[in-house]
Amino acid sequence: MQKVVIIGATSAIAEATARLYAARGAQLFLIARNATRLTDIAADLRVRGSQEVFHASLDVNDLDAHAHVIEQAWAALGSVDVVLVAHGTLPDQAQCESSVEVALKEFSTNATSTIALLTSMAPRFEAQRSGVMAVISSVAGDRGRQSNYLYGSAKAAVSAFASGLRQRMAKVGVNVLTIKPGFVDTPMTREFKKGALWAKPDDIARGIVRGADRGRNVMYLPFFWLPIMLIIRHIPEFIFKRIKL
């Protein structure tokens, strides 16, 4: 039976992923800020087949609280096969430009807290010598764009951190999976007009579980974002700075 820890468990992608693990009968430990919603989701996952669902509240920006919650997760599950770090926000870029405080707070939510959590959990995976550390980054981290470069820079930090962590953990048989979703139709992107490139949380969740099962390294989800981002990364700066993206 798989043992899975999910941080940011009330996000749409995380909840869809948890349902897939629940259907397999996995034991789950859910971590998120909102305790009421955690309770609801835990009940749902039990009905869907999870052997056992534990949960704990955590504000990821409360860095001092991380150690205790991670301790609780390992105490409850014994060992962990998969951890999915899925929390995040979509900052208002205009606000991030007019307020240093907002910019750094958003950076902390989307990058610093993720780096802290992965750092705290790495020694436990090293000791286990097995498992998957999956982290949700974003295609936005591949290149900073004027429309959301605070979010992009935070995700770039996560992607680079995960890349280094992957090299380190590979030596002990632990896989680090970087997930780079494109546009996903979730409550986080409620305000956007949806076009053909938009994916459902279920599609992303299936990709995450597949990637974790097969020991993948970096996944663009859906796959078509790989060629799109390849092109975007290679546009020369002198052209890139003149286009609107």
């Binding site: 609801d40 989701i41 009940a43 749902d44 009905v47 869907r48 409550p187």
Partner: peptide, 9 residues
Amino acid sequence: RALDRFIAF
């Protein structure tokens, strides 16, 4: 549609 959780069975 997003109210799609089971509560008990």
